[in-house]
Amino acid sequence: MTEPFHGWTPEALGEPGEVRPVVKAPDAVLSRAGTEVDPVDPKVVRLAADLMATMRVSPGCVGLAAPQIGVSAQVFVVDVSGHPKAATLHGAFALCNAKVVEASRWRPGREGCMSVPDLTGDVKRAARVVVEAVLPGTGEPVRLTTDAFEARALQHEIDHCAGLLFLDRVAGAHAIHQRKVYL
């Protein structure tokens, strides 16, 4: 398995993507484990392209999973480029059927989510992860090693694909906060 190359997107396969509405909690699709997908299926490539297009037009969004646009499937996109908390960067990419195979250096951190727009929460996650997945379109297996904010984003999106929200990972009500609105 190899690392995904920097900047891989569904557009590389000629799929521009369509912006889709984002599903909000408590919609049932957000609490169902997504099904594994065939990464070379044109519908999966199109789904990845739609996720990328939707993420790109959403201010502050660094990742988006298929359940967040109403599709119960294990597909997501991530791009933490330009985020001040990012250390390791792999650019914009889409992954299918991702699994965390190694996790270490657990740390708490504040998370938000487009599907839970009014709240943030303190979630303990691994600051270093190794993820195995496949690329949509090619079906190429990848092994991605990352840390810091990109590792947190990957775990957040993998959780979405498993039917979990960040609210399912907080230590209790004391770790949930009203989102601050900046004018």
Results as ranks from 00 to 15, higher is better:
residue 93 F to L: 11
residue 131 V to P: 05
residue 155 Q to V: 08
residue 183 L to R: 13
residue 86 A to G: 01
residue 134 V to E: 03
residue 105 R to D: 15
residue 148 A to E: 14
residue 31 S to L: 04
residue 94 A to C: 12
residue 76 F to D: 02
residue 147 D to N: 13
residue 125 R to P: 15
residue 160 H to F: 02
residue 10 P to W: 08
residue 29 V to I: 07
residue 108 P to S: 06
residue 23 V to R: 04
residue 15 E to F: 04
residue 56 R to D: 13
residue 21 P to Q: 05
residue 142 V to R: 03
residue 12 A to G: 09
residue 181 V to N: 08
residue 94 A to D: 07
residue 182 Y to S: 09
residue 152 R to P: 05
residue 101 V to F: 03
residue 42 P to S: 15
residue 62 V to K: 03
residue 63 G to R: 00
residue 183 L to N: 10
residue 59 P to G: 11
residue 116 V to W: 10
residue 122 D to S: 01
residue 117 P to L: 11
residue 142 V to M: 08
residue 14 G to A: 02
residue 56 R to H: 12
residue 3 E to K: 01
residue 7 G to E: 13
residue 29 V to Q: 00
residue 120 T to I: 03
residue 16 P to V: 10
residue 85 K to P: 11
residue 40 V to G: 01
residue 37 V to R: 05
residue 80 V to Y: 12
residue 165 L to M: 02
residue 22 V to F: 13
residue 147 D to P: 14
residue 181 V to A: 09
residue 98 A to Y: 11
residue 1 M to P: 05
residue 34 G to S: 07
residue 45 V to G: 05
residue 167 L to K: 05
residue 101 V to N: 06
residue 52 M to Q: 10
residue 30 L to N: 07
residue 13 L to K: 04
residue 39 P to D: 10
residue 113 C to A: 12
residue 116 V to D: 10
residue 31 S to T: 05
residue 30 L to T: 06
residue 52 M to F: 11
residue 67 P to T: 01
residue 79 D to H: 13
residue 89 L to G: 01
residue 135 L to R: 07
residue 49 A to R: 04
residue 4 P to D: 12
residue 20 R to C: 15
residue 27 D to M: 04
residue 131 V to L: 10
residue 114 M to I: 08
residue 11 E to N: 07
residue 54 T to R: 10
residue 9 T to S: 15
residue 67 P to Q: 00
residue 48 A to G: 13
residue 157 E to D: 02
residue 44 V to D: 09
residue 87 A to S: 04
